[in-house]
Design a protein around this nucleic acid. Structure first.
Lengths: 195, 195
DNA sequence: AAGAGCATGTAACTTGTTACATGATTAG
DNA sequence: CTAATCATGTAACAAGTTACATGCTCTT
């Protein structure tokens, strides 16, 4: 159910259409919580039914139209309530580590490829997340600038600090995963001296 | 679909019943990949239908019976093939970091509670995973001992090394998450000097 | 006029969660 | 005999994925 809260978070800044939200997911929130269009559009309609959002038809060009959603007071309350409730942590479900545990079943080259894929995956994420931190520091993050504008000056440092804190955590994770994959590659070389 | 492969991995060591597998999930694999009974039993039947497993009715006491599953050559092939194919990484979907990004919406105490929950969650995992590494080092891990017995002596160090490597990766992750949560707590104290 | 981008969905399917349900065996 | 454990499921639901499907607008 986090999708709903990700949407509420974005809509707490300003009203948006499904497409706007989709773009936000691709460009920013998606680095923390990914969602495809086929999930976003139905979620918005359901949230409107539940009274968390208010949709408004907007004409667009000659014949086109789009639906712009605005967060309702009920939606704001729901979001605040979620924010004030500690998360329930679900159990581990990690395919990369599951595979790692049985890596002796793989061909040495396949084992290397697996570790390389892990490394590259997190190296990409690392770059993206580092970019996000830079944007936050430089004030070039569009969503953050808009969000700050909705806040009294005294509260702005907090919003900025928590965003940065979030991405720093992800950066730390990426670095840890990269180090682990490197360790894995070294281990494979050690265990298969020839191949 | 990782569940199937987790089950194949366990059944590659020895035939087991659904209940045995459930216990294994609770006691060991579950620290990497969790699955409840309601998912395991249907998966086993489906895998038998697909020819990956062979079920055998075993009498148990006077009237009781149970079904013991054995991996088939097809199942072994499928498992090896999965092991030789690099994983596809799915996008991020991390509720803890999603919440962290909007932590200014929470009451200071709720924000602290959130970070504390994160810290405690990973502290628990850390202990479990450290225990697993100790078991591996001491040779007191039942499943690993059985697995090693199925391997020629020359291949045993690999199986051991990869198991240890896996848990070490998880330990590193837990330590990273704990450090992040501590950083978060310090940040909250800094941002809310009174509360 | 064409192509990139804006806009919104449906359908079928897979995976995972939660709750409900039942009954036998074995150790104390 | 009673409780813990062994044993196996079903049903309803929630969440997420993939593929399909359509049509308008705006810039060049």
């Amino acid at each position: 159910m986090s999708l709903r809260y990700a949407l509420l978070a974005l809509l707490s800044v300003e009203p948006m259409t499904g497409y706007d939200l989709l773009k936000q997911f691709e460009a920013s929130v998606g680095y923390v919580w990914h969602a495809p269009d086929s999930q976003i559009y139905p979620a918005l309609r359901q949230m409107e039914k539940d009274g968390l959002l208010e949709g408004e038809e907007v004409t667009w060009g000659q014949r086109g139209k789009k639906r712009r959603y605005r967060i309702t007071p009920l939606g704001l309350t729901a979001f605040r309530q979620w924010m004030n409730t500690p998360l329930e942590y679900s159990r581990e479900r990690d395919p990369a580590h599951l595979k790692a545990a049985y890596l002796e079943w793989a061909e040495p080259d396949a084992a290397r490829a697996q570790m390389t894929a892990h490394l590259e995956h997190y190296a990409e994420r690392l770059l993206q997340w580092q970019l996000k931190v830079e944007e936050i520091e430089n004030g070039t993050s569009e969503m953050l600038v808009k969000r700050l504008a909705t806040l009294p000056p005294s509260e702005r440092p907090r919003a900025t600090a928590f965003k940065k804190f979030t991405y720093e955590g992800l950066i730390g994770r990426a670095q840890q995963e990269i180090a682990w994959a490197r360790h894995g590659l070294a281990l494979i070389d050690e265990l298969y001296p020839e191949g």
